[in-house]
Simulated assay, not measured.
Amino acid sequence: MMVKNFAPYNEPHQSRERAPDAYENLLGDALEDAFGQHIHDIEGVVDILRARAVPVPAGDSWSPELLKSELARLGA
C-alpha cells in the first residue's frame, strides 16, 4: 500500500480576520513588485516603496527601520 506524504499548508487568508484596507493593498502590491523584480534586500524594497509613493505611516519617510516595524505591526 502506498502512503502519500502529508505536508501541512496554509489556506490563503486563513489567519486573516478582515479584508486588507487600501493602505495594506498598496504595501502588498509594492512588496510583490519588488519580489517580482528579484529585489530581496530591505534597502531595495524601501526604494520600491518610495518609487511607488506608498503612503508612509505618520508622514515619515520610508526607511529600512520603518519598514521592519510596519511589517511587524501588520503581522502582529
Rank of each mutant, 00 (worst) to 15 (best):
D41Y: 03
P64F: 05
D33G: 02
A51R: 11
P57N: 10
A58Y: 12
D60V: 07
N10W: 07
A22W: 03
L67C: 01
D33P: 03
A22V: 12
M1V: 15
A19P: 05
E24Y: 06
Y23L: 12
S69I: 09
V3A: 15
E11N: 10
G44Q: 05
H38S: 15
A22Q: 11
L27S: 02
A30W: 04
P57I: 07
G36I: 00
E43D: 07
K4R: 13
E32Y: 04
P57Y: 05
G75Y: 09
G28M: 05
Q14H: 12
L31A: 05
G36A: 00
D33K: 08
E17V: 14
R16S: 14
V45Q: 01
P57G: 06
P64N: 04
G36P: 02
R52N: 09
L26Y: 04
D21L: 01
D29N: 09
V46F: 01
A34S: 01
A22E: 13
E17H: 08
M1I: 10
A53D: 09
E70D: 05
I42D: 07
G75V: 11
D33A: 08
R16I: 06
A76F: 06
Q37W: 00
E17N: 12
R50K: 06
G36E: 01
D33L: 10
R16N: 10
R52C: 00
H13K: 13
P20A: 07
R73F: 08
I39R: 09
S15I: 11
F35A: 09
A51L: 08
